[in-house]
């Protein structure tokens, strides 16, 4: 197992390098440049040119890239073009809130989806099944901005029982209840979509397992249907679900761009939008690097977890 993990990590290095080269090219291909974004439009062309020179934007692209890479090798992600803060500090501040929001949303989504998905599969083609699959379709298709704004309108504007946005009320940052109140709406928005998807995954995966011969064996032993479904069938059905959850891990840190924007949630999604808008190259590069790393890491983690739940898989 350990040699396997080391091998996978070594393979990840060239992959990350490739991803970052492509990212760098695409970011630089986008029209506009950072200087136009921050500097007073009335300033003279000389001043603009001077700023560009200062930021190193006049160097050839590959020089810029290796410059970035050199800094990275020293653990330096650079400074934001727009806030002049260290990029690492900005990301560090944002990662916690995002992880909190996304983690809770995923957890809530799974807790809702699992029993519904199981029931829906066990009672395939029943009214309950149609209701569950129908509702899940609704959950998947409703846009986050629409649901988010709708919930804000009802609960924050009309009923005034929940805050419309932010992570906490000014002055009560340490109040747990206040924090929970701020979490409720954005978590609901995200959990609706997530549970909608997972109801379908769980249902499909369990249906595939329900016809298997080994369940007949389990029934032939005299086991209760509850044990047959929730022990024998479910453990098999969850194996593919684990992969899907694994692929979700990068989003846990990448944040939910639109939902964070709507609820003024100071997370990674919001940071991403801001840095795109302001052509903040160093921040964008760092965010992309983090995402690429998380994808690779999540894949590896999924494969490792897989070998624990599926005894047929062994890595050497």
């Amino acid at each position: 197992m350990v040699p396997y993990i080391i091998r996978r990590l070594l393979i990840a290095i060239p992959v990350l390098f490739g991803v970052m080269v492509v990212n760098f090219i695409i970011i630089n291909m986008a029209p506009g440049n950072p200087v136009d974004m921050y500097v007073d439009p009335n300033s003279s062309p000389e001043l603009l040119e001077m700023r560009k020179e200062q930021l190193g934007l006049n160097d050839p692209l590959y020089i810029q890239f290796f410059h970035w890479l050199g800094n990275l090798a020293q653990g330096n992600l650079g400074y934001s073009f727009s806030t002049y803060e260290p990029v690492s500090k900005m990301i560090f501040e944002r990662i916690g809130p995002t992880f909190e929001l996304m983690g809770l949303a995923l957890l809530a989504g799974l807790i809702i989806a699992l029993p519904i998905g199981i029931l829906s599969a066990v009672k395939q083609y029943s009214k309950l099944d149609y209701l569950a699959t129908g509702t899940s379709f609704f959950g998947i298709s409703i846009p986050h901005f629409f649901l988010g704004l709708g919930l804000i309108y009802i609960f924050a504007v009309q009923l005034q029982i929940l805050p419309a946005g932010g992570m906490s009320t000014l002055g009560s940052e340490d109040n747990f209840l206040d924090k929970v109140q701020h979490l409720i709406l954005p978590v609901i928005v995200l959990a609706v979509g997530i549970s909608g998807q997972y109801v379908r995954y769980v249902r499909a995966s369990l249906l595939e397992v329900l016809g298997q011969d080994y369940l007949r064996t389990a029934r032939a032993k005299g086991l209760k249907e509850f044990v047959v479904t929730n022990k024998h069938a479910l453990k098999n059905a969850l194996i593919p679900i684990i992969t899907i959850i694994g692929m979700e891990i990068p989003f846990l840190l990448g944040g939910a761009v639109i939902t964070e924007q709507i609820f003024q949630w100071p997370g990674m999604g919001q940071l991403t939008i801001q840095s795109i808008m302001s052509r903040d190259y160093p921040t964008l590069m760092a965010l992309n690097l983090l995402t690429a790393f998380m994808v690779l890491f999540a894949n590896l983690l999924t494969d490792i977890v897989y070998s624990f739940v599926d005894p047929r898989i062994k890595y050497k």
Partner: peptide
């Protein structure tokens, strides 16, 4: 009862 398919009659994950 025992079944025709020994390859698939046992649960692979237990």
């Amino acid at each position: 009862m025992i079944f025709q398919e020994p390859m698939t009659s046992l649960n692979p994950v237990f």
